[in-house]
Design a protein around this nucleic acid. Sequence first.
DNA 1: GAATATGGTA
DNA 2: TACCATATTC
Lengths: 278, 278
Amino acid sequence: MLELRLVQGSLLKKVLESIKDLVNDANFDCSATGFSLQAMDSSHVALVALLLRSEGFEHYRCDRNISMGMNLGNMSKMLKCAGNDDIITIKADDGSDTVTFMFESPTQDKIADFEMKLMDIDSEHLGIPEAEYHAIVRMPSTEFARICKDLSSIGDSVVISVTKEGVKFSTRGDIGTANIVCRQNTTVDKACSCHIHLPEEATVIEMNEPVTLTFALRYMNSFTKATPLSNTVTISLSSDLPVVVEYKIAEMGYVRFYLAPKIEEDGEEEDKPKPLTD
Amino acid sequence: MLELRLVQGSLLKKVLESIKDLVNDANFDCSATGFSLQAMDSSHVALVALLLRSEGFEHYRCDRNISMGMNLGNMSKMLKCAGNDDIITIKADDGSDTVTFMFESPTQDKIADFEMKLMDIDSEHLGIPEAEYHAIVRMPSTEFARICKDLSSIGDSVVISVTKEGVKFSTRGDIGTANIVCRQNTTVDKACSCHIHLPEEATVIEMNEPVTLTFALRYMNSFTKATPLSNTVTISLSSDLPVVVEYKIAEMGYVRFYLAPKIEEDGEEEDKPKPLTD
DNA sequence: GAATATGGTA
DNA sequence: TACCATATTC
């Protein structure tokens, strides 16, 4: 028996909007710890990891560990039927091949239940080691989204370079080149007093050593679908490690996207990024 | 000679937006009583009835009963040229094969007249008997629209069940099933005082006996195009009678949509709904 | 935050 | 042509 009651249902709606374009089908894993998902994107280049900790739910009952295979497109269709203020409850009976989403309007005047068929999905659950990163950039999520969108109108790849001074996003395409530098914000104090820059709106860099890596903008732009989940995004970079783009979900967990860097080809267009798994 | 002056011209614009998708050509009937229309949709499954009473016009002159055949698409094109605050006057000379729409801007700075050719349309004017309905549901029109839209992302038909407790909208499709229950709002008093539920925002059910009927969502979604006309919608149901979905037009009349229920096929997909006329 | 208006897509 | 998604306004 599984019953997870999430008061801020819009979170789940946003989570699905953020990952459904990347992943078609995935197993949601439910345990006493929380509700989580790990899945490769359809082209096996990027990886999504979601965690919603049990503490974030108003009510969390999960009698035994269970893995529920869902088509994220269909799940998203159903969640779109929930109002943004609705309380969402996820229910599944033991051994059932369906999951039920229940939506309660804030006033309780409208109660909806949507039942969806589960699927069998075989997924390799990768253990993702906690790595030490050369550099971690935290910046406003909307700003990162804007940068990825802007750059992708010029080129296909983004070169991200981090130094103590700031982070530089560069691209190159047929029509020209572009470089966007976000300076580490050193004026947080002043910012607060003039009510323009809240700390969340600053770019903050934690750096052990400078790092420069190249990524496919196509995936970066997919990741930024998670922007509504958090005001800030964290980008963790190390040479030869997949980048981690993380959106924290308030009080509950995170959505993390992993993407392998492009190998610097001095030659030309090799459009296939390196898969995360060989 | 016909001359109807409607101060709130946006009403006529909205009326046309609400019916032009359903009906291509129709006769507008003009008499001392008012300006009305009755027409089957192009597939002869649904029926639209419009009434704008003469009292609702600032000036209403209709010397003799007249029936004017119009292409609603073209009429809508012309009405789109009226500003939302414009005063609209409909004019026709006796024996003329054209109608003129005159638009006056609130400031009288801009006066437009659009002349449209009339058409000959033979239409059977059905007498619609005033029936006693098993159940009449009144609910916020936006909520009804939302429900029809949500359900149509899951299935093609909606089963509407009314009991004293509330009204249930259900559907079933390839990806699963959905049930949305709107409880009759019994707490209108409390609601008013806490400023959340205005009476208009409550679901109210008048029921003589429980009723369960099935309808094609495609038509229901067409009907909800009339949502901008009224904050509330009234759904009148009886077994084996067409449902009536009514949007009242303030001070003037209504737009009503009639749709025959689907016959419960225990077998499979019979996509053709029963026509209202045989 | 909600509703509406507009533009793009299917 | 109709629907959806976004952008803008209240």
